[in-house]
Design a binder for these strands. Structure first.
Lengths: 223, 223
DNA sequence: CTTTTGCGAAACGGGCTAGTTTCGATACGA
DNA sequence: TCGTATCGAAACTAGCCCGTTTCGCAAAAG
């Protein structure tokens, strides 16, 4: 973006001290930590620079401002890697959701929650978030469902994209509204009571439309 | 809360000019509008007072600060009233979700989105939000499901609370991450492909556990 | 009329933040 | 060695916001 980048790549003539690449990483890491702790809108360049043990000038020499720094830092976070293959759909989903929501490693969750306050206003941040968190998640979910289908474990699901959004949506909802980090038991409940039942052939999309052809089997009295 | 309230109710002796009740409403309404437009953390008392055509002193004479004003204003919003009774579960849910998410009236949605930036940090605001938005929603959902059960339309659902969170969660997720207001088609898709299928008896909670006893009936070939 | 309070408007002090600039020290190339 | 660019640190300008206070005026009670 800035002129320094072009100079660094095109090493025409480079007098003077070289830029310390370790400062880039330190600042990015500090930005992620501050982001996780106080959220996007309360993140200040001063706090990031201080945590990195760097001067503000060093920071502004690399990024134009807060938005660019955060987007770059979030963008370079190690994307969720594990493509689980436990042999069962449930096993894959459990590992997947627990990993994506980082039940064990709270840092990624905190970063995600910290970004929320910025997502509302900043469209650029929203794009970066969608590309860096949502898109890879969707891809992994697709692979897991496809493997289960090829395995013959479930019938083909036309709406895997919808299914793969259930857990993240409900965890996100819970996180913002209650302020509590994702609970493994909560995730398992969603999986066992919502997602997995929907993969059964009897519940494939053909709902309602004719609500009066119902099953009048159970009343409030004893069955 | 403040001493003025006690004085107003207990009219012992009230010298001087009376407080203009219309200023309360004007300030609350202005607060909601600013909240919907710029969000909680970017809301300033100055902006609210200016929009209400009032002085800041008038505002601070009634509320201690930003948090109290917003909580009071949100709390006095007309709560979702319509207890739908269309005769079918699907009809009730459609009316319910579309109303709660205000497909037609975007103001309530904007207020909700505007609150998000404050929910992350402010626990008090989170409690108010939960009490004023979540609790009544949950109650209405419960009534709708209960009526469907009594009607014999569906089997008793032990997890109505979980089911009633699906639509709001996914709409919320979509709202924050894409920035787009809730789409009626999206809501209908969730209802018909997720919520309603789960009310069928074959999909009642007993999922997975034994993934190998699967139903190897349907392959990718024609059924 | 006088007193007391509410009203809108404006100003003020204190605090926080962004982004720039300065300073002495350090590292690199010519 | 000399020039240049980076480094951390700090000072600095400018702006925004909060919460309080002041001011002139309007209304209600004695």
């Amino acid at each position: 973006m800035t002129s320094q980048v072009a100079q660094a790549q095109e090493s025409v003539h480079t007098p003077g001290r070289k830029r310390d690449a370790s400062r880039d990483d330190a600042l990015r890491q500090a930005a992620l930590e501050v982001l996780a702790e106080v959220g996007y809108d309360r993140l200040t360049i001063d706090a990031v620079a201080a945590r990195a043990g760097a001067g503000k000038a060093t920071c502004y020499r690399r990024w134009a401002g807060k938005a660019e720094l955060v987007v770059d830092a979030v963008g370079r976070m190690k994307a969720a890697p594990t493509q689980p293959d436990t042999g069962t759909l449930r096993g894959d989903l459990v590992e997947l959701t627990c990993h994506f929501n980082d039940v064990d490693d709270t840092f990624r969750t905190d970063v995600q929650a910290g970004l929320v306050s910025g997502l509302v206003h900043d469209a650029k941040l929203r794009e970066a978030f969608a590309e860096l968190f949502i898109a890879p998640r969707k891809a992994v979910y697709r692979a897991v469902f496809d493997r289960a289908i090829q395995r013959g474990e479930i019938a083909p699901v036309p709406n895997y994209e919808l299914l793969s959004d259930i857990v993240p949506s409900m965890v996100f909802h819970r996180l913002i509204l209650t302020g509590r980090p994702p609970d493994p038991a909560f995730i398992l409940t969603i999986l066992d009571q919502i997602v997995l039942p929907l993969t059964k052939p009897c519940a494939q999309g053909e709902a309602a439309q004719n609500p009066n052809t119902s099953h009048t089997q159970t009343r409030t009295t004893s069955s």
